[in-house]
């Protein structure tokens, strides 16, 4: 029990801002790489738009932005109620 407390109270990997920054840099680099690789291989697509440069990247990004914007600014004002709404 004592031992587990000790390990729990040690600052974790993500408590240090420089680690978070390092992780973000790695992530952004990888993201760039996945897009860059698009130029170097032959695509087998069913729909024509799948062959456009970065189609999936743009779609994924735009889809998530739209998802969050609609959820936050349209859905939430419509459906959010206090926690005791049904009581």
């Amino acid at each position: 029990m004592k031992k587990s407390n000790e390990t729990n109270d040690k600052p974790g990997m993500f408590d240090k801002p420089e680690n978070v920054k390092r992780l973000l840099v790695i992530f952004f680099t990888l993201t760039g790489l996945t897009l860059g690789i698009d130029l170097f291989y032959h695509k087998h697509a069913i729909f024509p738009w799948e062959e456009y440069f970065g189609f999936y990247a743009v779609y994924g990004f735009v889809a998530c932005v739209i998802l969050v914007v609609i959820s936050k600014f349209i859905l939430r004002p419509l459906v959010m109620r206090k926690e005791d709404y049904y009581d």
């Binding site: 999936y56 969050v68 936050k72 939430r76």
Partner: peptide
């Protein structure tokens, strides 16, 4: 590659929205 791109850029959107304070 298509799937990896889709997922990485979804994650990118999440990260940027979170850093920008827009994420709900």
């Amino acid at each position: 590659i298509a799937q990896t791109q889709l997922l990485f850029f979804s994650a990118l959107a999440f990260t940027l929205l979170l850093l920008a304070g827009i994420y709900p």
